[in-house]
Design a protein around this nucleic acid. Structure first.
Lengths: 245, 245
DNA sequence: CGGGACGGTTGATCTCGATCAATGCGGGTC
DNA sequence: GACCCGCATTGATCGAGATCAACCGTCCCG
């Protein structure tokens, strides 16, 4: 198995899987004209469902959740946003979900009208946005399998595996993956909301995986996966599809 | 509340929400050159996860599911494909999910390389594909709320409401919605796989909704919703977000 | 230093949906 | 007609995860 971290070009705030050869100078210059950076504290709302947004941003540092809360307080997190993910949708004025900073978050903002104009001028950006959106769509559908059919234990394992894949700064990508150290950007409550579980079940299953030697828990927000393959087996997935995010 | 059926242009197999003014003659002519129609019987596989696809298609008639099956047989349907939805992803060679015809399905096929070339020539198509993909993304995330946080009864109600919204050929779209008649394109098993339930629970909850007068069941594949608003209330959702698909 | 707020863990019990099992029902073939 | 087969429904029971509740460790603040 290979870990497949998303490569991104440090010079360009819009993520893409290709290398920097794709970022031509004109595009970078035009993007630079309309972008600005902004930092929010942990817990800050970055967007509210239905609220009109005059800008479109991508996360540069930090971590956020995208969620919906039902009338009676039940909450489901539908996406975990990490550096290079975008907030708001290109060409849309509103987000259908609440976005909230989990830690201090720095975003790169583009004024929406100016960005839309830029996309019209540089069609290359539209196709890159399409690729990014297709990736998000795959991830959202993969997650439906986790939510709909996996047990609590499998959900936790799938979550840790997907987080490891996204955070992975693992060098030997083609060899067998050794121990992986993870920082959890979420509280137990946020994990539970992402997995469709309660806090208690989340906590118990983490304890169970720890007692079974599949993970180590050096700190409340720290996880070590001694054997990545072994944990991946706990997801019940055959690995073909790849639960990515 | 308004029902918001997807409008589509009969002359153009690629769905879009805008009216036909957007379909210019050149585009239609170019599309016509590379498209062909094909029909599959009910139950036929339209794509297999991971399999390489040399074409990209959109559904013209019939209904299909997109699903993943875990090693031990548990299956989750991640999307219900109806006319105007596409199979395969633009610019991608493989689908991460299995696609299977629920009824006889007619698709409009585009040879993948030719289609990609066309998209490069007509950037307008790329932005339309982006819009379609963003809609699918919203729908997939909405569905995560259903899978992760709703009870069995709420899941059934949400499914029927979303199906009604998609099938709706309701005239008075701005007035209060009256009775809605639905044809179910899925078996109980397919519904269960879509909702993350078992067949038995699905059947029991349909019976319960019927006994409570929220739906009528004139046939196994027929549902009448006498009061659309009342059924929508059963979803636990406040309607703001709108569970669409 | 005491107190309390917060996040996390653990225990006891309950409940909803899964599971196992039987029955119904319509449509097909021989 | 007799039979069967696939799908749906209904009943009985079980169990995973929710719920209710207690407790623990850490940090902050007076």
């Amino acid at each position: 198995m290979k870990l497949d971290p998303i490569s991104s070009c440090a010079a360009c705030p819009i993520r893409h899987r290709a290398v920097c050869a794709e970022c031509d100078a004109r595009e970078l210059a035009l993007l630079a004209e309309i972008k600005s950076y902004r930092t929010f504290p942990a817990g800050a709302p970055l967007a509210a469902a239905g609220e009109s947004l005059d800008h479109f941003s991508s996360i540069v540092a930090g971590c956020a959740t995208m969620s919906r809360t039902l009338e009676d307080g039940r909450r489901q997190t539908v996406g975990l946003l990490m550096p290079s993910d975008y907030i708001g949708r290109p060409g849309r004025a509103t987000s259908p979900f609440d976005v909230e900073a989990l830690s201090e978050v720095t975003v790169c903002r583009f004024e929406r009208r100016a960005f839309e104009k830029l996309v019209r001028e540089l069609p290359h950006i539209a196709s890159r946005l399409l690729t990014m959106t297709l990736d998000e769509l795959d991830a959202a559908r993969d997650w439906a399998v986790v939510l709909g059919r996996m047990t609590a234990r499998e959900k936790i394992a799938a979550f840790l595996v997907s987080l490891a894949r996204r955070q992975a700064v693992i060098e030997e990508r083609d060899g067998p993956v050794g121990a992986v150290a993870l920082h959890l950007p979420l509280s137990r409550e946020a994990m539970a909301d992402h997995l469709g579980l309660t806090i208690e079940t989340t906590s118990r299953q983490i304890t169970a995986l720890r007692k079974d030697g599949l993970i180590e828990v050096p700190g409340k927000r720290e996880i070590v996966i001694p054997d990545f393959e072994a944990l991946a087996l706990e997801t019940g997935d055959d690995g073909d599809g790849g639960v990515i995010a």
